[in-house]
Design a protein around this nucleic acid. Structure first.
Lengths: 340, 340
DNA sequence: TATATTCATGTAAGCGTTTACATTATTTAA
DNA sequence: TTAAATAATGTAAACGCTTACATGAATATA
């Protein structure tokens, strides 16, 4: 492979000049620029990224660590990040982590090797202080996805779960429901918690007392939605509506209701959260909240690049929190279209 | 951040010795090793990856390029690759590509920057000669996923689509079906083609004439499965069974049959391919072929690392092809459980 | 025309490692 | 004991690039 020296020789200039034309920095006479360009083309030269990183002390790769549990959402988010950062010549390095401990380890690995110029951490279930201290301890720009509001120096991007959950619950209430159950996702998951909080808030605002039988715990899988919903259906006084913390569970719940010999939405209305692609095809089509994952990824990319770009020292102390707006998608499973 | 020089100074040795203990190469007296280890710990030293890569000319990161269209399968495969290669200190860099052209560009970008020691390319729909020539032109180990058998020097890992498709079709035939339709995936997709080929083969082997009305073209989405199946249902002499090239389309097809006022599997049996998580919860539960994506990823990782490790020059000329075995999962949608 | 100013290019050090080779310390053999 | 063999460590060049600084060329100013 050709190096910058080969190019310099062929073009009859110094490596400094070649570097200047490659990076478009400093002044170069247009005639020499042309000579250099030709040499580059002829030798099919492209700069060695390791050498650049080593010398400039600025890495153009960003690390992304994501837990296995989030793999459903992963590829869309990654696509969004890629889409944004590639424009600026940044690459993405990923590390999957089985649990919290591994998550921290993966992040530290990225940081220690000086391989990354910034980090994206998706850790919706983590309460690991060390993880959140990473940006300060390593003075590296980090963007967190779906984490609770935390200390200074932490930039996080979250979904507008609370607000939309309130709206969705109100929608159900407006439809006449007062016995509304909620299927939680994984116990420590931040998104799930906020969605539940919104549900409670809406009940409270409407003077509906919380029935503890109506809160059940799933783990975001279709299967858990199925199983918990089955129990709900067996209750002597069963709910007339069910709000699942994500679509996968909502879909499982729909199956459970059907298998209990009941109808959705006539006997039990069901709504979800995420708007995964299946939701529009299932019968009845699922009423849910659309989460724009690709867009989320783009915002994450943009935010991180900003952090990397601006004089980081200045920025390090301000906690920043960006909330991604969401949208309710009304379909059939909530029963709005039912004539009564 | 501490460098190897700082460590050397603190331990009172040369950088060479530090390097030797870090990499476990060459002989070091155990007393000095201990001194060096302590210094490393005290300074929290870890080697700069860029410097290592630059000097050793061996990158411990592998690139993975995948098309947007494959994003459904992406995260599981990546998890598998990660799981394997992390053990050996390798990192994964990913690039998503919108189309074929971009796919090639992304791959070349990885190669040019000398950032990667090997490449995984998922290009089930590509017929781009340049893409397949990459490993030779850049003399870099490349593993392709789901591509047709191609020239020398190409290592590819594919699913046992053809065989399983034959088996699945035979299963349907054994159940008494002779009017079996097939819903294709995207037109140029290799997996889809092989699955279709297996279907045709099974028909032929059983002396069943191919009815051209019974081959329809979808694009792997639930929606396309729904739409194409609707047409199938409207046929004056409609099929009694439908084989969809993937589960998403099969699920769409199930909805379409229901919406046509028909029953699955009584009126029309439906089978798919992939065994995505939804398949077991849909009603009726989908009979399909399980594709072990995580495992596929592991095999990909292992194969690539082998290629990187062995003296690559020797290996470059041999085309290698690994076939991942699959397994049929019989559930309800094919009607096996029906009493007749 | 002489001088100051600006522009274009070159020189060379340094980024943090690894490793071939040289040197010194230690052990073994005679 | 001493020479030979081996083990442990050090020296310094190289990997491919960027950039501060030095230098030389071209242009503007007086």
């Amino acid at each position: 492979m050709a190096t910058i020296i080969d190019v310099a020789k062929l073009a009859g200039v110094s490596t400094a000049t070649v570097s200047r034309v490659v990076n478009n920095t400093g002044k170069v006479r247009s005639a020499t620029r042309k000579r250099v360009m030709n040499a580059i083309k002829e030798l099919n030269f492209s700069p060695n990224v390791s050498a650049q990183t080593l010398q400039s002390k600025q890495s153009k790769t960003i690390g992304m660590v994501f837990p296995d549990a989030s793999s459903l959402y992963f590829s869309e988010i990654i696509r969004g990040i890629c889409n944004y950062v590639n424009q600026f010549g940044f690459q993405i390095m990923i590390g999957s982590a089985h649990d919290e401990e591994e998550e921290l380890k993966t992040a530290v690995r990225f940081l220690n090797g000086h391989t990354v110029g910034g980090l994206v951490i998706m850790a919706p279930s983590s309460k690991n202080e060390e993880l959140f201290a990473l940006p300060i301890n390593h003075s590296t720009p980090v963007v967190f996805i779906s984490v609770p509001p935390v200390k200074a120096g932490t930039t996080s991007i979250v979904l507008d779960n609370f607000k939309m959950s309130i709206e969705m619950t109100k929608h159900l209430i407006k439809l006449g429901h007062r016995d509304i159950a909620f299927i939680n996702g994984s116990p420590h998951n931040y998104d799930s918690k906020r969605r539940y909080a919104g549900y409670l808030k809406a009940l409270q605002e409407n003077g509906i007392e919380v029935n503890s039988d109506f809160t059940v715990d799933g783990n975001f899988t279709e299967d858990s939605g199925y199983r918990t919903c089955l129990k709900l259906c067996e209750l002597t006084s069963r709910p007339t509506a069910i709000f699942a913390a994500n679509d996968a569970m909502a879909i499982g719940a729909i199956e459970a209701v059907k298998d209990s010999g009941l109808r959705v939405p006539e006997d039990i209305a069901i709504v979800g959260f995420d708007d995964i692609s299946t939701s529009q095809y299932i019968t009845p089509a699922l009423t849910t909240v659309r989460v724009p994952l690709f867009n989320l990824g783009q915002v994450v990319g943009k935010t991180l690049l900003q952090k990397i770009d601006t004089n980081y020292e200045k920025n390090i102390a301000v906690a920043e929190r960006i909330v991604i707006p969401l949208k309710i998608i009304i379909r059939e499973s909530c029963g709005s279209q039912l004539k009564r």
